[in-house]
């Protein structure tokens, strides 16, 4: 199991000033790590569409690296995205899935198929150029250069420690993550588009 923030600290080293699209629990983790929030688009809700949004950005900005931090439950809500991404095959897209096995923000209920399915296997069979799996930080860190220099679309499934939120919504601390609408405006300004 890998701590998601520790993982993200490694990925940030290979960001190349790229555009990062985290979702759900991953958005909180990336918010602690990111060194350029003008190029972050935290995208919650919309039933697992962070990878779809990122695909659109990758197609519009083919010379910039685009990194997704998807969730396993989020990907299950939008599994067709694997085929859609593979079909367009953007060379600049790096699709991380933080596989913690649970719906973390709703109290930690297990996702369907937990420990029975292979997300990397599905991505590979859908047609991604490459697919990797990691459950050890040291192993990932030692191969991060190889992973991030592989031509996309690259799928990287990482077994992460669940960060379960179990408080009633009204008792949770306000989100520190930038709202998506403002993040999109900041990105467009930063890109000059």
């Amino acid at each position: 199991m890998i701590d998601q923030v520790a993982l993200m600290e490694v990925v940030e080293q290979y960001r190349d000033n790229g555009i990062v699209v985290p979702t759900m629990t991953g958005s909180r983790g990336w918010n602690e790590v990111s060194k350029n929030k003008n190029r972050d688009i935290p995208l919650g809700g919309a039933m697992g569409k962070a990878s779809s949004f990122a695909l659109g950005v990758a197609l519009a900005q083919p010379d910039k690296r685009v990194i997704i931090f998807d969730g396993d439950g989020s990907l299950l809500m939008n599994l067709g995205t694997l085929v859609t991404i593979a079909e367009k095959a953007p060379k600049n897209l790096y699709h991380f899935v933080l596989e913690n096995g649970v719906y973390a923000i709703t109290g930690g209920q297990p996702i369907p198929g937990n420990n029975k399915i292979s997300f990397a296997g599905m991505a590979k069979e859908a047609g991604y150029a490459s697919a990797f799996e990691f459950d050890d930080l040291e192993d990932f860190a030692s191969r991060a250069s190889e992973v991030m220099s592989t031509e996309g679309p690259v799928f990287i499934c990482v077994k992460t420690t669940p960060e379960i939120q179990n408080e009633p919504m009204g008792l949770r601390a306000p989100s520190v993550v930038k709202p998506t609408k403002a993040a999109i405006q900041d990105l467009m300004q930063d890109l000059g588009v």
Partner: peptide, 12 residues
């Protein structure tokens, strides 16, 4: 919808 939004955000 999400892909189109990403395309727009990327300036196309």
């Amino acid at each position: 919808i999400a892909i189109a939004a990403g395309v727009l955000a990327g300036g196309k």
